[in-house]
Design a protein around this nucleic acid. Structure first.
Lengths: 220, 220
DNA sequence: TTCATTTTGTGAACACCGTTTACTTATTCT
DNA sequence: AGAATAAGTAAACGGTGTTCACAAAATGAA
């Protein structure tokens, strides 16, 4: 029951699987979900299209793996920032800005990860457990961060940890999506802001965290 | 050069065009971009697929028209809220919440309207003028609202009208996308918040507007 | 090594897609 | 009425994801 790469057969399988993902990654990063086809991947690695189905159940499964891997990178990145100890509100701001910046390193990946629409009514258990996805883990970091801010007395106590975290997530997600969609969102034609994209991300992160912060009028 | 529906030919053309859009709308609202095909529309209205190309240049053109029309509804809705005179920060909050609620009346439409990715480098003029889209108009309302809040001395003066408006847009866009993606975002499995979707939208809108508001410490 | 078994890769096909072309049928205009 | 224009169609082209029967290769046991 060894699931390691001991036997050459296993090593080989992993190698081919990796090559498929690598080729897919290459195409996906540049042309997005639209430009990625099974036949295209097959060409890229000199295999037949059908061969890919020996390694992945479907195109969606393959793409899901790309998205998961990418969210792994976001997770890593945000985690790193969250761990650097630094006076509090500043660290929170940097986490938010870091999330957005990392997300935008591969806009196609990020957008694709949130492109689906949840089924309307059923509210079924939903096959892919959210709880053990990298999306969930990346988000958990933010939840912890908000919790820390609350305990440190830096954020308004009556907000509720989870709600505050969700609001922050939504806000930073929104900016990432906007910039991915309109390439030059911060300095858009109809209303150039004179800010670079990077400056605007910082600006937005400031506002987002500020919405949680205590104001002089609040007590405790 | 009358471009009205005087002649029966024109009336007929408009009627058929409308029927196509209506059928497309019907399918799109339920199954989204994935379930909508030219052949499917053709079936629905008992025409041949090729006939549709006498009315629309491409599938994308057709879908763009659906999206534009939907943003017209958002525009209308937000405009209505913005016009009801009410003490200020409250009106702003209601605009934000209203935008999100209206967007979520047709999640597929809303998500599709922001699904594309801007081309990476070229920064070309971009054919479809953003400035005369309903997206732009809906957004302009928010810009005006922020401007009003600034003039009323309700928001921090050093923010800058356009930047503040963009940040608000991003934040409310983010929540709309999140709820569309995870159907039950506010009360997600891993961290139920005890809030209904509607309550959470209000909660989020509060935070977003609060990030702009003056705090007791600020002067003027 | 040899042989049977399992895994891996293939080519052809299926059913769908958006779109174009050549064509027929309506409709409009003179 | 007849000519000109528009509307509608069937068939095809090249593309997609996916499946299936089959060939080739790697594996495990004798």
């Amino acid at each position: 029951m060894e699931d390691d790469l001991h036997t050459p057969a296993e090593r080989r399988r992993i190698r081919v699987r990796g090559a498929i993902l690598e080729a897919a990654e290459r195409v996906f990063a540049v042309e997005g979900e639209a430009g990625l086809s099974i036949r295209r991947i097959a060409d890229e690695i000199d295999y037949s299209p059908a061969a890919i189905y020996k390694y992945f159940g479907s195109k969606d499964e393959l793409i899901d793996e790309l998205k998961e891997a990418f969210f792994g990178r976001i997770l890593e990145s945000v985690n790193e920032i969250a761990d650097r100890s630094e006076p509090f509100p500043g660290r929170a701001r940097k986490c938010v800005a870091g999330y957005i910046r990392t997300a935008l390193q591969k806009p196609h990946h990020y957008v694709a990860a949130f492109s689906g629409i949840a089924p309307a009514e059923p509210a079924l258990p939903e096959s892919g457990d959210f709880s053990d996805s990298n999306r969930a883990r990346a988000f958990a970091i933010l939840t912890d961060m908000v919790a820390e801010g609350l305990e440190a007395g830096c954020f308004r106590a009556n907000l509720g940890r989870d709600n505050a975290a969700k609001s922050v997530w939504a806000s930073m997600h929104g900016l990432a999506m906007m910039i991915a969609h309109f390439n030059d969102f911060p300095s858009m034609a109809t209303m150039p802001s004179g800010m670079s994209q990077d400056e605007f991300i910082t600006f937005h992160a400031d506002l987002v965290i500020r919405s949680l912060e205590k104001t002089p009028g609040d007590r405790t």
